[in-house]
Simulated assay, not measured.
Amino acid sequence: MLSFFQKIFTVQFETETIILRLEAAINQLKESVAEWVDPILLGATDVKRVFLSPKAVEEVLPGKTIIQDWAPYKPLESNPEKLVRQELIWMVDDKEEPRIISLGTAPYRVPFGTGYHLLNIDIFGKHFPRVRNQFLAQIQQRTSTLKGPVYCVLSFESSMWHDMLSFCQTALGLHIDREH
């Protein structure tokens, strides 16, 4: 069910290198006002209201489902409450009329090599410039406290695969490590 709605790929980067590339990409996008809308970090009190809003459920969430780290959650009152207890970063492009919603996990150590961390980012919505902005903001939020190598598993609307691949390669110098 997941692959029908979302495309998933993994990129690998060194935190110290990506920080500079993130700043450059964000600054370049901010210079073009039409390209950048600041992602809004949601607090726990806003999560349930935004994620359970009829607009988000009907128009943004794939299959009317919250997907976090490959696990599907129906938009029921109890599920956002469960997810808020995790150390997720919740972002939207607009609190009242969201077109893009994203969830980012706290990085956790993985045994791929010395010092590796894994970061999962799930982005919902179909407007590529705002999806790209959420991706950049999610990475920026987490890399500020990391050092060393990171695997980032990114999930997004499958129709944007070529745009996201091109952006990752040209603006950030990243290459797909794995595609799912």
Rank of each mutant, 00 (worst) to 15 (best):
R85E: 15
E23I: 07
P54S: 13
Y116H: 12
E58R: 15
L119I: 13
I100C: 06
P80T: 07
Q28L: 09
F9R: 04
P111Q: 10
R21L: 14
K55R: 14
H180T: 11
T170H: 09
A137M: 09
V33N: 06
A24C: 02
L174S: 08
P54G: 03
K82T: 11
N120H: 14
Q138P: 01
H127A: 04
D69Y: 08
H180I: 14
L76D: 09
V150P: 00
S159M: 10
T114C: 01
L174R: 06
S155F: 02
P80D: 05
D46Y: 03
E16V: 08
P80L: 06
D94N: 15
W161G: 02
K126H: 07
P149E: 04
L103R: 00
E59C: 10
E35V: 13
G104E: 05
I40Y: 02
W90H: 07
I26W: 06
E31M: 11
V92S: 00
F13H: 11
L118R: 11
N27M: 06
Q28N: 12
D93W: 04
L20R: 15
P39T: 06
F13T: 08
I100K: 04
A106Q: 15
S155R: 15
G173P: 05
E31K: 14
N120A: 13
A24N: 12
Q138I: 02
T170E: 12
F51N: 01
L154S: 00
L136A: 04
V92K: 00
Q6F: 03
S32H: 10
D94A: 06
L146N: 04
V150L: 01
P54N: 10
D93C: 09
G148D: 07
S32A: 09
F167M: 09
